[in-house]
Design a protein around this nucleic acid. Structure first.
Length: 183
DNA sequence: ACGATGATGAAC
DNA sequence: TTCATCATCGTA
């Protein structure tokens, strides 16, 4: 009798190269892995938000390319890290084709339930901005074979984007795992 | 409900 | 150079 062992798979550009709700949902159940001082911390991703394209009025890229949002225009699978409210580092992974600005904000992973708390715990800052998601940079995403069923994915409007107007702030582009499945 | 806190982008 | 704005969080 045998058993199968799921080989951990590091997600790269191939995985992130599409810009769609599909990718945002697919990130749920994947693992964010951070290497600090030789130790690896891995947390299951539980909540994300999608910021997609030029027309998304809630996206930093809505007013075109700027110094800050440049990573969003880069190729997929890189990090976009910026400072919010003067004190919180926000972690996003860039998706989609080069020159098409799109990113997914990672809002919750493991026991951390807010984007600011997550980056603080994992010591993620702007030094990682525009770096590739890979072992080399010390921050990457792994597929460990966790199967997430569609019925366990909830959606809701994105947080704090009222300024984008009703059309965009009401869009349900925040996705999270039903908390009851990992109690 | 609100203040802490500083980078950002746009207006002037 | 100034100003309003903000993808938050902890305390109330």
């Amino acid at each position: 009798m045998g058993y199968t062992v799921f080989v951990k798979k590091i997600l790269d550009q191939k995985f992130f190269n599409k810009s769609s709700v599909k990718i945002a949902k697919a990130l749920l159940g994947k693992f964010l892995v951070r290497k600090i001082n030789g130790k690896e911390i891995s947390l299951m991703i539980k909540e994300v938000e999608l910021y997609d394209g030029f027309n998304d009025r809630a996206s930093h890229a809505n007013r075109g390319r700027t110094k800050r949002n440049t990573p969003m225009f880069g190729s997929a699978g890189r990090w976009y890290v910026y400072l919010c409210y003067g004190m919180y580092e926000m972690l996003n992974v860039v998706i989609g084709k080069k020159n098409y600005p799109a990113a997914i904000l990672i809002r919750g992973a493991g026991r951390y339930n807010g984007p600011g708390k997550l980056t603080e715990a994992l010591k993620i800052g702007r030094k990682l901005n525009n770096k590739k998601a890979s072992k080399k940079t010390g921050l990457w995403v792994e597929d460990r074979g966790v199967k997430v069923y569609t019925k366990n994915i909830k959606k809701a409007p994105r947080v704090g984007v009222h300024y984008a107007g009703p059309k965009w702030s009401n869009k349900k582009l925040r996705f999270f795992l039903n908390p009851s499945i990992y109690s």
